[in-house]
Design a protein around this nucleic acid. Structure first.
Lengths: 145, 145
DNA sequence: AGTGAAAATGAAAGTCATTTTCATTAAAGC
DNA sequence: GCTTTAATGAAAATGACTTTCATTTTCACT
């Protein structure tokens, strides 16, 4: 049974909040984890439907929100207006290829530190941030237009 | 006549592209410039209508796109799903207050340089980026919840 | 196993920012 | 002034997401 830790984590969240344990939630969590990140609701929906043909979009949207609340997923908004979900883990930022859509994660302590210093100058309390570099990945830059 | 430079710049762009010089475009450019930045289409629309009551949303949207193409404005997408336009000028990043919506601009050569080094490591060509810090401004952090 | 209250589901309708369509109007070159 | 071509604006369409609501499930308690 893959992703057992995450499924247990979902169960615990559901119990703690008096929510119910349903096969839809299980299925959506599995589909999301199998896709390993940066996936849209639509993609999750079509993956889940392969196994459970009558799960609707509504349930996918609702469940992904729940997984975010449970700390298992997190929402990302890149520049195409579609919400993507990634597996929750340590903070990081992104390189996004404008041609093939590939998303590379990066992190840089130096930048994190510098941005807090900047915020300080404006007496601004940073709660979260986004830092995205858009351009072309190696393969796409090499490929003909 | 305020913002004469920008109006001339619009005229030039229209001529170069065989587009027409209309009072709506003039009015929208004026309204946009008077607001001095980070304004939504809706705000522009309501400002313009004060003077020209029958300019529609459609024209505002179309004209703002044109102003972006003409290099006079640029689009920004923060986290509320509404497109904002700012007066085009040197690249910079933003601090966004989650309570009052205040937007502070900043720039940091050090961060810019560091992010290019990171991209290099992934052989990624950066075309543009966004870097936004979300949190509370001084006034809002001090105010009661 | 049976019951019932509370929560979950899903289909359909609703939002909301933005875009498209299309019939009408207005610039600008002759 | 005419004519071509672009611009306008009202209304309909789009698309991602949310809400509604009647129905179904879960689960704590018999």
């Amino acid at each position: 049974m893959p992703h057992e830790v995450e499924h247990r984590s979902l169960s615990q969240y559901l119990e703690e909040n008096n929510l119910k344990h349903t096969k839809q939630r299980e299925a959506i969590l599995s589909a999301f984890l199998e896709a390993s990140g940066h996936i849209t609701s639509e993609e999750i929906h079509s993956r889940v439907r392969a196994e459970h043909p009558n799960i609707g979009y509504t349930t996918v949207y609702r469940t992904m929100k729940l997984l975010c609340d449970a700390g298992l997923a997190s929402e990302r908004h890149f520049e195409d207006g579609v919400t993507r979900y990634e597996i929750a883990h340590e903070h990081h930022d992104h390189l996004v290829c404008l041609r093939c859509g590939k998303i590379i994660e990066f992190e840089c302590a130096m930048i994190e530190k510098t941005q807090l210093e900047i915020a300080d100058r404006y007496r601004f309390r940073v709660l979260r941030h986004r830092h995205e570099l858009y351009g072309h990945c190696d393969a796409c830059a090499a490929a003909p237009t």
